[in-house]
Write a protein that binds this DNA or RNA. Structure first.
Length: 294
DNA sequence: AACCAGGACACAA
DNA sequence: TTGTGTCATGGT
C-alpha cells in the first residue's frame, strides 16, 4: 500500500542542507525564510531542516514515492566514509571543519550542463539569474501550492534549440548564448546522447562533453561530478586555483601541468568531493567569521 | 570606479 | 606546452 502524501521526512546524519543547496553546485534554489524552494525533476518542492537529523520535504501534489528526491539529495550517502578518504593535511582539515555536512547533489545532466556553460566568468548570483530567466521563458509551468507564485521546470533541449540566439542573449548570458544553442541542437539531433555517458568511464565521458562548443576541462568536470557522480572529476576554477596555490604551494609558482598532476594524485578517490570543500571554504571563510575584533 | 567572476578559444611565442 | 587578448554582464 502506497502512502500518498504532500510531505516526507528524510532521516539524515551529517547533512547541512543550507550549505549543500547554497554552495554553488546548483542554481535553482531560493531561500524563503527557513525553507529552500526549487524544482527537481519537474516537481516543485520546498525543503527545510528543522533539526540536524531530518530534512522535511513538501511537494505541490501528493507523491507515491520520494526516490527522485532522495537520489537528488544523496541522503543515503555515508558522509564520514567519504571524508575518511580525504588527505590528512592541514588545509583539508580546516576545510572539512568549516563545511561540516556539505554534500554533493546528483543533478540532471542537461540542466547541469547548461548551467555550467552559462557559468564561465560569472558570479554565482548571476548564474542563478540566468537559469531563472531561462526557466521562466522557456520551461513548462509546474504544479505549485495554491496561491504560490508560478514555477517552471528547466527547459528541455527542444525548447532551447528552438530559441533564437537573441532570445537567449536576452536571458543575460551574453557570449554564451551560441554555446547553449549548439548544445541543445546536439542533443536534439542525437549528436550527443547524455544518457549514454553513464556507461563510459570518466575520461571518455569528459572527451564527449568537451566536443561541445564552450565546454572545456573545467565545465566538463563540473558536469561529470555534479550530474554523473564521477567523484574523481576535479573542477579547477579561480577559487580552487587560489586554494591550491595558497594552501598547498604558498612559496613556489607551480606550472599548470604540475597543479593538474597534484590535484589528480593528492586528493584520493573522492577528489571532486574534496574540491567542493576547498571551494566553499575559500569562498566563505573570511565572510563567515567577522568577529575577530570590535 | 576599477576589479573580478565556478572559462573557452584562437593565436602567439 | 605556456602566456595573452577577447568575448558580455553586473556584483562588490
Amino acid at each position: 500500500m502506497f502512502e500518498l502524501g504532500f510531505q516526507h521526512r528524510f532521516a539524515v546524519r551529517d547533512y547541512d542542507l543550507a550549505a549543500t543547496l547554497g554552495c554553488g553546485q546548483a542554481f535553482r534554489w531560493q531561500q524563503v525564510g527557513d525553507a529552500w524552494e526549487g524544482v527537481v525533476a519537474g516537481r516543485w518542492v520546498s525543503l527545510r531542516q528543522p533539526d540536524t537529523d531530518s530534512i522535511l520535504a513538501t511537494a505541490a501534489v501528493p507523491q507515491a514515492d520520494w526516490e527522485w528526491l532522495a537520489d537528488y539529495l544523496q541522503t543515503e550517502v555515508e558522509l564520514p566514509i567519504v571524508l575518511a578518504t580525504f588527505p590528512d593535511d592541514e588545509p583539508m582539515r580546516a576545510a572539512v571543519a568549516h563545511c561540516r555536512g556539505l554534500r554533493l547533489l546528483r543533478q540532471e545532466p542537461w540542466e547541469c550542463l547548461v548551467s555550467f556553460i552559462c557559468s564561465s566568468t560569472k558570479q554565482i548570483v548571476q548564474i542563478r539569474q540566468i537559469i531563472a530567466l531561462l526557466s521562466e521563458r522557456f520551461g513548462e509551468a509546474v504544479a505549485v501550492p495554491s496561491g504560490h507564485a508560478p514555477a517552471f521546470a528547466f527547459p528541455s533541449p527542444d525548447r532551447l534549440a528552438a530559441a533564437s540566439e537573441a532570445q537567449l542573449r536576452a536571458c543575460k548570458m551574453g557570449f554564451r548564448a551560441p554555446y547553449v544553442r549548439h548544445a541543445a541542437q546536439q542533443i536534439v539531433s542525437g549528436g550527443l546522447r547524455l544518457v549514454d555517458l553513464h556507461a563510459h568511464c570518466c575520461a571518455v565521458a569528459r572527451d564527449e562533453l568537451e566536443q561541445l562548443n564552450g565546454v572545456g576541462r573545467k565545465i566538463a568536470d563540473c558536469v561529470l561530478l555534479f550530474a554523473y557522480g564521477f567523484q574523481e572529476a576535479f573542477p579547477v576554477d579561480v577559487w580552487v586555483m587560489k586554494a591550491l596555490r595558497q594552501l598547498y604551494f604558498p612559496r613556489r609558482r607551480p606550472t599548470p601541468h604540475r597543479l593538474r598532476s597534484f590535484s589528480e594524485t593528492h586528493f584520493g578517490p573522492n577528489a571532486g568531493y574534496a574540491q567542493q570543500y576547498l571551494f566553499h571554504y575559500m569562498r566563505t571563510r573570511l565572510r563567515s567569521k567577522p568577529r575577530g575584533k570590535k
